[in-house]
Design a protein around this nucleic acid. Sequence first.
DNA 1: GGTAGTATTTCAAAAATATTGAAGGCCAAT
DNA 2: ATTGGCCTTCAATATTTTTGAAATACTACC
Lengths: 301, 301
Amino acid sequence: MAHAVTLEALRVLEAIEQFGSFAAAADALYKVPSALTYTMKKLEEDLGVSLFDRSRQRAVLTPAGRLVLDKGRTILDAAARLEDSVKQLESGWEPKLRIARDTALPELPLLTVVGAFLAQNRPVQISLSEEAIAGAWDALQDDRVDLVVGASGDLPKGRFHTRPIGELEFVFTVAPTHPLALTEGPITAAQLREHPSIVVADSTKILPQRDSGLFESRQVLRVDNMMSKVQALCLGLGVGYLPRHFVDHEVMSGRLVIRECELPRQNHMSYIAWRKDDPGRGLSWFIEALAAQDWQLLKAE
Amino acid sequence: MAHAVTLEALRVLEAIEQFGSFAAAADALYKVPSALTYTMKKLEEDLGVSLFDRSRQRAVLTPAGRLVLDKGRTILDAAARLEDSVKQLESGWEPKLRIARDTALPELPLLTVVGAFLAQNRPVQISLSEEAIAGAWDALQDDRVDLVVGASGDLPKGRFHTRPIGELEFVFTVAPTHPLALTEGPITAAQLREHPSIVVADSTKILPQRDSGLFESRQVLRVDNMMSKVQALCLGLGVGYLPRHFVDHEVMSGRLVIRECELPRQNHMSYIAWRKDDPGRGLSWFIEALAAQDWQLLKAE
DNA sequence: GGTAGTATTTCAAAAATATTGAAGGCCAAT
DNA sequence: ATTGGCCTTCAATATTTTTGAAATACTACC
């Protein structure tokens, strides 16, 4: 057979893995188990590999099966997106719009904009997700999202369009109960090393951990989003820089104090970014709306 | 119908576009034209769009058809690679290995290594291509190649493994007949502006042109590889920096002269780079062989 | 350790889908 | 106008997929 794999076979494979058995998958697909057996047998035969270990009752994926499943998923994804693109071509509205927010940005402004969009009752499904550090770029890169809010850092421009939305300002904070809350003068690098620091880890799965807090601390606690970092700081588990807009409220309520630190953290420009495909009407609307939104950052330009 | 597209339909679509007509595609696919009509009709029906404009004798793609074709191609590609990965899983040898060389690197060392590989008679098809500037990274990114030799510049590390192979040294050259060949002292920025410069353009399709020669010249001639640049320089069409190893031979034969220039061009480190998938035995072999090869660069480290 | 229950496969029959070839229409070039 | 090439339609045919019943094998539970 010239070409082994079919989307149908990949779908069946995915369902089997997802539902845990041929029988369950057959139910979900409104088919009969033997139909799945047939499809999988054929795929195995055509690929010349066995995809399942059938030595026991419950069929379990072989490494080859896992490989085909993993790569197959991205193919199925791409196929689904193809269908979406076609729909977009008709109305101009994309059926789905996936938006990621960098964890350093406040959630409220985004939700406000999303609310305004939903009120228009467009045929566009919105998905929101949160990314940290380079994760936002990666998500865009890998076509896991269509629009990123708050991406920053060394931007892999070129394949993306970007638009600055403001500058993130970081302040060094500790809990009022923390030893470093009471010391005199700016906190030194030496003092820092004496205390754990809280760091938001890169949400990228692929990257070797690259951290946002850069100082070398005796111990580092990694969390995967900014709210966790705020919590950890408030509890006095460690010290670290926070975006200013996160801090104000906590300082007011006495849960955190701002200190000066010898190792300053650069401000960085925050962007919205999207892929250089032709944007649907939904994406275009969001770009404008998000750019006009107040993100509680230092003014852009 | 739940899911419209099938790989088979995409293949047919691609063949029709490639061979220019239903009839020719049918021939190529060893089918009869009406079979293709049937497949395409079904795809159109399922997608709810017409893919061909049939108002005239020869069916021609509609914009929707073009869209499906373009996106479909990458899906077909991915499917083909899936099958290759499965084969790789058995023997360890990947069926195909696509290697890109940055145009700033000499071709000979690569060909030497490739020769040594071919002599081993492995079941691996090698494809070579040439990229300029960021094109190499993009090719890797987009999965158009598996291994890049000579990538440099701000490297989007993280999702790639890299290994330095040496430092590229650039020297400013002009033809002996060129007016700037005879001036006194280092060439100034002002003098530069008086003459066209030859620039290797980014081979990336997506990026807005980003050039490797950075000075502002009155006029810029863009070429897409280093050999063209050498030719253009030898002909005295303009001036520009060249990697040293390209220059030696031309200087010996009197076709170029080296001048000093006020706007120096930084050396940059050259890398081999590959994706962080599990490498096949072919890729592993090449990584070692290429790293051990003498690239006529300044020594790495 | 037997047994009921569940999971998968096998197989032949039935259903659905794809392919074929002949016929027809239409365009374009001679 | 005529001819030849290109695409579609349609009914017949071939192929592929689905089904359900029976067979086999494993698990877990008494």
